[in-house]
Design a protein around this nucleic acid. Structure first.
Lengths: 196, 196
DNA sequence: GCATTATTTTAATCTAGATTAGAATTTTTG
DNA sequence: CAAAAATTCTAATCTAGATTAAAATAATGC
């Protein structure tokens, strides 16, 4: 068949583009990166990017969607492997941190959501809310099964997600620190939440 | 004297400008706010802003410096009033959150640091590092005086500051939630850190 | 190898928004 | 009140960077 490989090729390039864009945005800030910057990471011309997205707004939108996908992935894997609420949470945190610390990480700080168009903005916000809710559900499960101490899941969830999302602000690629982060940070975040 | 009142007037307007700018950046994102937007909040023309700053880069820089000042203020007040490490930390967290939640809050997410010029960027980063170090010192004091349980102050500090700095991402002016945040969030962040 | 489709480039254009110069207005001072 | 200083406005300019159109190149199926 002809469409399948074509789709794949196209998708692969598009994916590379999203990674390059996320990398640029993280490194140089949003207003500091032009389409040319992104294109040059790929060895392309800025105009070539328009073969993959309608405009810059869509590129940003897709970066956010990709970040959400990666987060969801980390969470699903944790749900599959974990044995109780606390275990799922710890695994999810670890998976997520591993992703943030890696070089193909998602776009870190969602500062440009206001400049998305209404449909895209609403979708990104919805998906983000959904992820928060899923994390709170893990906490609730843990409380129910006794592995997590009773707490305000809304606030606790936000506190923990904030710590995670803030990592790129102070972590800058130090290998040793990276390993420590993956191993220790989940425990630090879970500290004081262990159940009976 | 003639210079004193002039300075004051000028400073007052400049301060209003910084608040307006922070408000715009928080609400509409950085790339989404033009100097015109900031000026219109003040009832001015965009060109008028150039009486107070050399260019937009300097405006951003000053916003970051102001944020740092407010953070330092919150911390100093806490240091004066607190009786031990844990108490100082809790007071600082409360002060800082009160500030974030208020409408004259500082600029929240420091995403545009990369696009500052080298001198300004270095200064902002330095001041930011200094603040982190000061917070870690509070933790260390608490561990020393027994009010805080032994922990990795570096990671713990980053975890807590991340939770704080992330608040604007999910808090959007709900009054009730605001009070709850101020009263409960510090406790949540300190959970698991209480000493002997 | 040929025809078709996919991908990228070159070369313009187009625009929002930053910036500037100088005039106008408002405030202050003596 | 008049002069001087401080503040703001009007009206251009200026530019980076997004976007587009059409041509050129590369890949693919038959």
């Amino acid at each position: 068949m002809t469409t399948a490989p074509t789709q794949t090729r196209f998708q692969l390039q598009k994916d590379r583009m999203l990674r390059a864009a996320a990398q640029c945005f993280n490194q140089k800030g949003f207003s500091g990166t032009s389409l040319r910057d992104v294109a040059s990471v790929l060895g392309l011309t800025d105009a070539a990017l328009y073969y993959y997205v309608r405009n810059k707004e869509e590129l940003v939108y897709l970066c956010y969607i990709r970040a959400a996908d990666l987060g969801r992935e980390a969470m699903e894997k944790a749900r599959e492997d974990g044995v109780d609420g606390m275990d799922v949470m710890l695994r999810y945190l670890r998976n997520h941190i591993e992703m943030m610390v890696g070089d193909r990480g998602p776009i870190a700080i969602m500062s440009e959501i206001p400049s998305l168009n209404p449909e895209h903005r609403e979708e990104v916000l919805a998906v983000s809310r959904k992820h928060s809710a899923a994390f709170e559900a893990i906490l609730a499960d843990g409380i129910a099964d006794g592995s997590i101490a009773p707490c305000d899941v809304r606030m606790t969830g936000n506190a923990i997600m904030g710590s995670i999302n803030w990592i790129p602000k102070w972590y800058h690629g130090d290998q040793e620190m990276g390993h420590k982060l993956i191993d220790e940070f989940p425990k630090i975040l879970a500290r004081g939440l262990y159940g009976t």
